[in-house]
C-alpha cells in the first residue's frame, strides 16, 4: 500500500517536471509608439508629427494628433486654433471640406 502510494507520487512529480521543463514566469515587453499619419508633418504648423506643434515644448501625449473625417491629420492645438479663426464654415485647411472630427 505504502509502496504504491510512493510510486504514484513519484510518477506525478516526474510527469509535472516533464511538462513544465521550461516555463515563462513573467515577461516585460518593450514597444515604441509613433503616430500613423498620412503625412510626415502637420499641414498647419509644418512641424513634423514626431515633434510637437510650435506652441508646445515636448512632443507626445501633451501634443496629440487628431484626424478629420476627410482623413487629414493635424496637431490638435493647430487645428483648434484654425477652427477658432474661421467664422462661417469650419473647413479642413487642406481640402476645404467641412471639418468633422473622426470618431
Amino acid at each position: 500500500m505504502i509502496v504504491l502510494k510512493r510510486s504514484w507520487r513519484k510518477y506525478s512529480i516526474d510527469n509535472l517536471e516533464q511538462v513544465m521543463k521550461v516555463k515563462i514566469k513573467s515577461w516585460t515587453g518593450v514597444a515604441t509608439w509613433r503616430w500613423v499619419a498620412n503625412d510626415d508633418s502637420c499641414g498647419i504648423c509644418r512641424m513634423p508629427f514626431d515633434g510637437c506643434c510650435s506652441d508646445c515644448r515636448l512632443p507626445g501625449d501633451d501634443c496629440p494628433l487628431v484626424w478629420g473625417q476627410c482623413s487629414h491629420c493635424f496637431h490638435i492645438h493647430c487645428i483648434m486654433k484654425w477652427l477658432q479663426s474661421q467664422q462661417l464654415h469650419q473647413q479642413c485647411p487642406m481640402c476645404r471640406q467641412e471639418w468633422k472630427f473622426k470618431e
Partner: peptide, 20 residues
C-alpha cells in the same frame, strides 16, 4: 487611435523557470 506600436524584442526580457 492613430498610433502604431513597434515591439523592440531585443530589449524585452523575461524570467524563466527552468527545471530540467
Amino acid at each position: 487611435s492613430g498610433r502604431k506600436l513597434t515591439w523592440l524584442h531585443h530589449l524585452c526580457q523575461g524570467e524563466l523557470k527552468v527545471s530540467h
